[in-house]
């Protein structure tokens, strides 16, 4: 199996006023392509910061992050954007759909960004898979939380990402809707063969992944395979 993501001696320190605040220290791990991994830990443990570094949303203060063989540290903001568009899919706790775009348009955007033509059928297909074929022309505010997260799922898979990062994907949903979304996430992931990295403090969700990395106080305290 190929390594899709590799972190070596990664650290992250923020400057708060005059005092440095170290959020992550000496993080090392690799993730194989096609695997499913969860990063768990209590609030303030640094897991979201870690996700941001893995996905090229932020830069490490020290160490290297390598995604699909590309070292992210040396890239400009625009090059990082291109990496995200080519290889990465996202799912966020608060859905993060563009409020001025319909469900269909939200799903089409990553494909359009790549300059692909005739993207509508794929977007329609994905929306059909997440069970929203009747609501494609609705705006995010016209959809329920569960529906918004399903649009978000369709969008995440639309650009056929190599790796998909999900930040607390069920954090804003009720138990019943959560189950449906999680089921859908894993089904779509399996079908696409995408690497899945989920940040969560929901241990039930974490248990569904093949591997769990536990973070506490900015350190990895355990890395276990189920």
């Amino acid at each position: 199996m190929n390594t899709i993501l590799r972190l070596q001696q990664v650290g992250k320190t923020y400057q708060t006023g005059n005092r440095p605040l170290t959020v992550l220290k000496d993080i090392n791990f690799s993730i194989e392509a096609g695997s499913t991994v969860s990063i768990v830990g209590p609030s303030g443990s640094g897991k979201t910061t870690l996700l941001g570094l893995c996905a090229g949303l932020d830069r490490a203060t020290s160490g290297t992050v390598e995604l699909h063989g590309i070292e992210l540290n040396g890239l400009s903001e625009d090059q990082l954007a291109s990496v995200r568009n080519q290889y990465i899919g996202f799912i966020f706790q608060n859905f993060q759909l563009l409020p001025t775009l319909t469900a269909l348009e939200n799903v089409m955007v990553p494909l359009e960004l790549r300059g692909e033509k005739n993207v509508k059928p794929r977007a329609l297909d994905l929306l059909d898979k997440v069970g929203l074929s009747e609501r494609i022309h609705h705006y995010p505010t016209q959809l329920s939380g569960g529906e918004q997260q399903r649009v978000s799922l369709a969008r995440a898979f639309s650009n056929r990402p190599q790796i998909l990062f999900a930040d607390e994907p069920t954090g804003n949903l009720d138990a019943e809707t959560s189950d449906k979304v999680v089921k859908l996430l894993f089904e779509l992931n399996k079908e696409a063969g995408t690497t899945l990295v989920v940040v969560t403090h929901d241990l039930e969700l974490a248990a569904k992944t093949q591997r769990t990395i536990r973070v506490k106080g900015g350190n990895i305290i355990s890395d276990s395979i189920q």
């Binding site: 949303l57 903001e77 625009d78 954007a81 291109s82 990496v83 995200r84 568009n85 080519q86 996202f90 993060q96 759909l97 563009l98 409020p99 001025t100 955007v109 990553p110 960004l113 790549r114 969008r155 650009n159």
Partner: peptide, 12 residues
């Protein structure tokens, strides 16, 4: 919205 677009790969 701008941050989401940037996440999805839109450059500056």
């Amino acid at each position: 919205s701008i941050a989401i677009l940037r996440c999805l790969g839109v450059n500056a």
